[in-house]
Amino acid sequence: MSDPGKIIEIEVLRYNPENDEAPHSTVYKVPFTDDMSVLQGVQYIKDNFDGSLTFRWSCRMAICGSCGMMINGVPKLSCETFLRDYYPNRISLEALAHFPIEKDLVVDWSGFMEKLESVHPYIIPKEKRSPEEGEYLQTPEQFGEYIRYAACINCTLCYSACPQFGLDPDFIGPGALAILHRYNMDSRDGGATRRMELVASEEGVFTCSAAAYCSEVCPKHVDPANAVNINKINASKDYFLRFLRPKGES
């Protein structure tokens, strides 16, 4: 049984755009039990100390991708991170790094949403088929080529792990590029050529300097760093081979 008397200090970086020039830290003393996640700690603060504390959450089971935050400087999903693992030390919480802070722990994700759209994150069929012709069949090997990247839950922890995105917000970034790669690797998809313009562009894969922290923090083990680096090779091939292609094709 856990000791019901345990209290952990949680330091939260607060920012209220209506009153604050810049974010500032506030420390809360939160009673906790061993089964409490960091998200539950934050909910406790909202319910008991300050109802204006703002944060995103939904599923509480590491699949919706809403509750990411910097926990002691590391991007993590707060629902699957436990207070007991930090006790008796203080925990510091901050909105996901590199994104603009909207309020408290909520960031502005509109840039990411645009990037996600720009990768054509859907199957562009290689060959058009009518329903009468039946389904697109796929072998387990073909499935194995992309399933790893299909596990992405758009939590954007990888963006908060990416110094290049922090330095250059236009970088398409690890998450969207991993999703792009997921569709390129799908045997039913024929959209790789269409996606190449983005991959090979100045906002594309070459902004990455292979720090590879994105793959380290990904809660779904998607390995975006590998997806980005494979596409550097693809874009390099395209860079030189485009001169050999017949004119008019792209």
Binding site: Y15, P17, E18, A22, P23, G73, V74, A97, H98, P100, I101, E102, D108, P163, G166, L167, S209, A211, Y213, E216
Partner: peptide
């Protein structure tokens, strides 16, 4: 709109995480 998104500076980003310290060392 009361929106005023706050953009945090990147100064000293590499000192904030042992992973980045190693990264800067191997880059150097």
């Amino acid at each position: 709109s009361k929106r005023r998104p706050y953009i945090r500076p990147m100064d000293g980003w590499w000192k904030k995480n042992p992973f980045f310290i190693e990264y800067v060392i191997h880059e150097s």
